[in-house]
Amino acid sequence: MIDHGFLRELRAVTKERNIALIFDEIQCGLGRTGTLFAYEQVGVEPDMITLAKPLAGGLPMGAVLMTEPIAAAMQYGDHGTTFGGGPFVASVALHVLDRLSDPALLEHVRATGTWLGHELNEIAHRTSRIRQVRGTGFIWGIDVMGTAAHVVSEAMAHGLLVLTAGEYTVRILPPLVATKEELARGLHILEEVL
């Protein structure tokens, strides 16, 4: 987890020196941390953020959001892409953005995410197979003893799909609509596997 104070200092330094500050919210943005954008929780505004993954509900789509001064530096013909922001994908993304902006969904991610972190720490305590638990909302990394790939493979055999992030970190990114009961079932499998 990145330190909020560090980000605030970074913003001050980059502003003073005219350095563009870009937050990559491709994975942590659009509700995954419990606010529509993760930067909202830090108290600083970057010059740009990048978005993608959930934006169009599984259709490929990315976006760069920028301040007026950055936008003003770009002229016609400076950059382009044939498919970007086409009507089909943008229509679907409008629906997804509305759903992911829903205050009730974001509150669910915040509240259930706090519970999820607590449960993961309890599993770490009970199994002694976890070195560290990091994350917030519905984005968690669990540093395990042994390899993460082994945990992924064993979990799959027991009906749970999880990811890796590097060699020793199991990554958990459940759908934001997952209920506490569904998450509890997955955590039970994870604990058994560990």
Partner: peptide, 11 residues
């Protein structure tokens, strides 16, 4: 915070 958006196809 933004005032303009550029759309593309991936992260």
């Amino acid at each position: 915070f933004a005032s303009k958006v550029f759309f593309c196809n991936s992260g």
